[in-house]
């Protein structure tokens, strides 16, 4: 098994960063806490690719699961409803 920074089942917080330029972390998950539910492997970093870079070093990509009602101030769905989103390792911190 590949050694990864995070494991399925880990509770993680999405870093609340607002870097200039392209990134694929949507604002509505920043600062929110979710659970890693799948590891996809290592992929090129889009924040570097977007500006003609080689996308290296590769970044671990995780699927992070949120209760959809934890993402908003209003009731966005039923209590069992979820949002899954792909997050690169450098946006995650352990909780």
């Amino acid at each position: 098994m590949e050694e990864t920074t995070f494991r399925v089942g880990d509770r993680v917080r999405i870093k609340e960063m607002y870097p200039d330029g392209h990134h694929r972390t949507t604002y509505f998950v920043k600062g929110k806490t979710g659970v890693v539910n799948r590891y996809f492997g290592k992929y090129k970093n889009p924040e570097n690719l977007a500006y003609g870079g080689d996308g290296l070093p590769l970044r671990e990509l995780y699927w992070v699961e949120f209760d959809i009602n934890d993402l908003w101030d209003h009731e966005a769905g039923k209590k069992q409803d979820k949002l899954y989103i792909e997050i690169y390792e450098h946006w995650l911190e352990p909780v």
Partner: peptide
Amino acid sequence: DPRGTLKDMGFDAPDDVELIVIDSNAD
């Protein structure tokens, strides 16, 4: 409002089903 979105599109998700929204944001 995923359930409202589905309703707009003519589809009612059953109340007891777990609805999972996938944000296709990366690879």
